[in-house]
Design a protein around this nucleic acid. Sequence first.
DNA 1: ACGCAACTTCGATGACTGTCGAACAACGGA
DNA 2: TCCGTTGTTCGACAGTCATCGAAGTTGCGT
Lengths: 114, 114
Amino acid sequence: MPRSSRRRTPPTHPAAEEIDLLDVLHALSDPTRMTIVRTLRAEPERACGTFPVDVAPSTLSHHFKVLRESGLIQQREEANRRLTALRGAELEQRFPGLLDTVLAAYDRTAGAGA
Amino acid sequence: MPRSSRRRTPPTHPAAEEIDLLDVLHALSDPTRMTIVRTLRAEPERACGTFPVDVAPSTLSHHFKVLRESGLIQQREEANRRLTALRGAELEQRFPGLLDTVLAAYDRTAGAGA
DNA sequence: ACGCAACTTCGATGACTGTCGAACAACGGA
DNA sequence: TCCGTTGTTCGACAGTCATCGAAGTTGCGT
């Protein structure tokens, strides 16, 4: 297989109707990913490197993949950046109130801290 | 160590204020445990063996332990049974609306099936 | 053209998870 | 007292997970 098969593939996302609740819950149960989602809540779109998490770039990339495949986030390429956004509207349509409730619950316990 | 150390220990539960959202989300992200919680929703208290899940007793015991340690359920001993109940009120107090929203989301996709 | 910046992919590693079967403990009834 | 029911604990095992470093790709600036 040619070396070019190693090319960076454009991100793929599940359709809104395919989003699985159990996958979403699992994605949210990791602290790093929860931080990413919370950050995205405040700011609509961010580049990968701009999240306040302290892990190696390769680890971060892994977490984005999990979030993407669960349907929580969306990524589009722009230049050599990858811009990440919450799939807020689709999530709301499929699981009304879920994201709000979960994030409110997190805020309530993790406190306003961070 | 004496054989009696192998005695069955009474179930312990985290205090309401100690319930961790990430632990709860993780606990709910498994299909077997989600089924247990959903079943408990309909019926207030059940014995371990009466849940509509198809796993070995030892596996079921493991799932109860995860649910108990996450704070989702409560178990009390009665004779040689262990009765399981949702910690609905405490959960509601700590994470308002969470359980309702999550279970509604599950019902919506998994359908009325089961 | 060269190098830097931004991410991704690969491979490895140690930790955790879901699963089971076997053995054990506790209780109630025959 | 012996037995069946109920459920737990232990040990094992295969699969998944979070993490990292190294290497690779892409695109922008210089």
